[in-house]
Amino acid sequence: MIELVDLTKKFKQIYAVKNLSMFIERGEIVGLLGPNGAGKSTAISILSSLVEPSGGDVRFENKSILKHPAPFRKVVGMVPQNIALYSDLTAEENLLFFGRIYRLRGKELERKVDEVLEQIGLTDRRRDVVKKFSGGMQRRLNIGVAMLHDPELLIMDEPTVGIDPQSRNYILETVKRLNEERKMTVLYTSHYMEEVEFLCDRIYIMDKGNLIASGTKDEIKQILSSEKTISITMERLNEEFLDSLKENPLVNRVTIGEKEVTILVPRDINIFSEIIKLAESTGIELNSVDNKTPTLEDVFLHLTGRALRD
């Protein structure tokens, strides 16, 4: 449906996006994962024809949208990262306004507004001013506004930042439902890997403007096939234990939590007995030593050496 070809965007000295290529097929939910500043919003702005790239092309149905964005704009719905609503107007007034700029009128407009309010679960708050809404409700309306003109492709830029878990689940369920019931294609951007894991068929992972991994969930986790993650929990950590872990030639990476240490080791090594020995010799009281199933977080850690959320 849509394809980014070798996209680059430079702001003065820095590359916000560098040689990014990706595609989205009809009916997919595609995830774009990356920490803050990875270049996700920039990539999305270019993809939705709002920002011109420094290089590369965006193709919709095999035609470049850079010169002729009109046909593409008709079918795209954009959920911006910020709450892009008139805060002094009510939910209903906002929907009416944005519906009208899409040339919806009269009965059709009313029907559409009712339908969207129903979808985002704000029917009984329709006459309340947006300013008075909770963060979650504002986020929901922010999404609702983008669905008024029945877009074929919905682009969502971190639609769940800073909201309560309930609203977050509601949004995730709504996106899934839209995709299943209406065959809506979705590009979902987030720095929460759980969301992307839950929603998406295929995933692109970005960091510092670069694409560092892409594919289905399983394909991406295959990146970790040569390694496994072991989680060690204990009553109290000490430096000696950590140092000896770090010095161990079998251990590839050590990540330290409060009462937990995660290490990456080669897949075919049995390191359990060694850990227990180490613990004994350094006076650590172990609670558990687990073999973890890898997450996207682990993939990101593996590829960049940093946690996704910092």
Binding site: S48, P80, Q81, N82, A84, Y86, I101, V145, H149
Partner: peptide, 16 residues
């Protein structure tokens, strides 16, 4: 403000 928040982006994508 509307530009920064994205209201303008919404309008640009619309037929306006």
């Amino acid at each position: 403000i509307e530009k920064r928040e994205g209201i303008w982006d919404r309008m640009i994508l619309s037929p306006l």
